[in-house]
Design a protein around this nucleic acid. Structure first.
Lengths: 194, 194, 194, 194
DNA sequence: CCCTAACCGAGACGGTACGTCGTGTCTTCTG
DNA sequence: CAGAAGACACGACGTACCGTCTCGGTTAGGG
């Protein structure tokens, strides 16, 4: 009801500053000293809140905006997935967020705390949202009763991450459509499946 | 024809030392100083050969062994893919190689040189090998003429990397089988696709 | 008239704590934070009373005890001086007071406030006491009318401080006797002075 | 014969810089960071040579000049002592050297390394020089055979240090003369000594 | 006897400096 | 004469205190 508490102000100032700097020089060259200096804050004030650069960065990235990646429900599961995948590709594979997200995942590879926090705060909610939408579709009969929702999610997500992190090929709308078509129309090895 | 040249010895000594140290303390805590000291080599001798820690590490990891991930051809494309995917999962997602491979990919996220070298020296050959095997299968009529080989490769690889890098769920034989079944038996959403 | 006021209690608690800590870790490693923490007192409560660590320390040392260095008057000026000098050497050049006193003088070298307070609160009273005793002796005819009292005091004190602060040689009873003998029997360079 | 070695240059640069800074801001506010920055040198380069600010400062002060406090020998011991004491008072009790010397002695009060080095490198040589001059005088019959040389030195030095370090009274030529007169003419307690 | 202003503990805060580590370059000296 | 050894300038680390500044929670005295 009343004004935001003093310490909260600093927390947000620091995260915003960290994000700004990360956007300017990249996560690798981000330094606690620079964040402290630009934020007009003592280093202790940062270390009191985050034990490492990695977790500050994670917090800064994940707190900075609402992802806008919630699933709509137009009644057409394929259209809805297409919509969210497109938005995700636009957001996470393009500047300014793309490099930050890549760095976050890069850091997670050798930092269990970051890996855990990233999973808990971003991957799992996003996964749960997708699975919920798929579940509704299955209940509405748009998907077969034995449709493997978990696997479907990974088949849709995996290739996108593969392109983002490994081959760095662009993730186009056409590619998303190919993926969706393969998943929902079946990728039968023979001309006439079944 | 005669004994290996002196400088080659050093190159290999350094790479082996770097690899040993990386296995002991992890890539993040690997230092050029430590490599030089343990290898009994001047730091310049390292910098003369590699421009950065990242590329030395990449070289050390990729040169250290033959991957053994070439595709067999038993005539059964699914069995052959299953075999290679299992071997890859065993090799790349488990200690001692798993963490190193993860670190390599992590480093690639903010280091274009590493990303390029990793692609060129590991990902692309591996991709080409798989695609070649798939092409043979298509020519033998095991796959439909319009079967999207590139996409198939990414649908098989993507989810494995997703689990390795993002969710850190285990990559079991059962999971590989689920993936292969989905891809080759089709994942029709409705009982009677099309 | 009634019980000591609350704030006085704190003042003494703080000084006592400062003294304890100084005895344990030395003045150089004494910190206001540590004093506050051990005294169970806020830092402001200390700063409200003393403007700096140095002046708190000075207060703590000088308030902690009565020196017991007042001059007796047995009628024998030499014996009386000998007595006081011995007591001073025992007190100020030996643990636990010696190191504290040395630190105080050390601090005074670059802190005019400490230098002034030390002079005013310890050195000058002590000097005045000695000079008063010498004056009585002169009036009693034990000393020549033109005996230079001020200089005599400095000749007695200077060498003691020289040993305490500079050469760190022990100040023995024998040394004090040598000093007194030199001063009162004369240190004639030639067999027959003048 | 050939040019000064590189590392020697840095050693001297650092000492000179430390001395300059000490003259500007005083020893208490001298910081290793500031020395390094102004000398254009990494902090490690300083720490490789001196383990602490105190020892760097000591080295800087003691190496910076020849004291010029060697004893002349005009044949008149009193005149020679007077000469050296005057020069010492001018040098050590006046800016710019006075404050530095005071700080050095101040630091020595809680730093045994500094105390030892100061004694060994400055006090003892100076003492030895004075005693040698006194010894010559005694051999020439200017001083009585039982003249206590060591004590004489301390009676001459002690009061000067007492004024410098404790009471901060000025050390005038007149004061030096009073001291010398007292020592050599005798300070008889009675009107007619002996 | 309650109210209220002063005081207090606790410790966050912006700073400064510490002493250490690793980087990539540059020197020195040796086998 | 190449290479080990390591010095070097630099930048960042994470820590310790400084002296100032909130923040609530007493606490005692005056109404």
């Amino acid at each position: 009801m009343n004004a935001r508490r003093r310490s909260d102000d600093r927390t947000e100032t620091i995260m915003r500053t960290a994000l700004d700097l990360a956007l300017e020089v990249g996560y690798a060259k981000l330094s606690m000293e620079a964040v402290a200096a630009r934020a007009g804050v003592g280093k202790d004030t940062i270390y009191r809140r985050w034990p490492s650069k990695a977790l500050l960065f994670l917090d800064a990235v994940l707190s900075s905006r609402n992802t806008g990646l919630e699933h709509p429900d137009t009644g057409d599961i394929v259209a809805d997935l297409r919509e969210v995948m497109s938005r995700a590709a636009d957001l996470l594979a393009r500047p300014p967020w793309g490099p930050l997200y890549q760095d976050l995942i890069g850091e997670a590879q050798h930092n269990p705390d970051v890996a855990a926090a990233l999973n808990q705060r971003f991957i799992q909610p996003q996964t749960a949202d997708t699975l919920a939408r798929l579940k509704v579709a299955k209940e509405q009969g748009q998907l077969a009763p034995d449709f493997d929702l978990d696997l479907a999610f990974e088949i849709l997500s995996g290739p996108l991450y593969f392109r983002l992190l490994i081959t760095q090929q662009p993730i186009t709308q056409a590619y998303i459509d190919r993926l969706l078509r393969a998943l929902f129309a079946g990728m039968a090895p023979e001309p006439h499946p079944r």
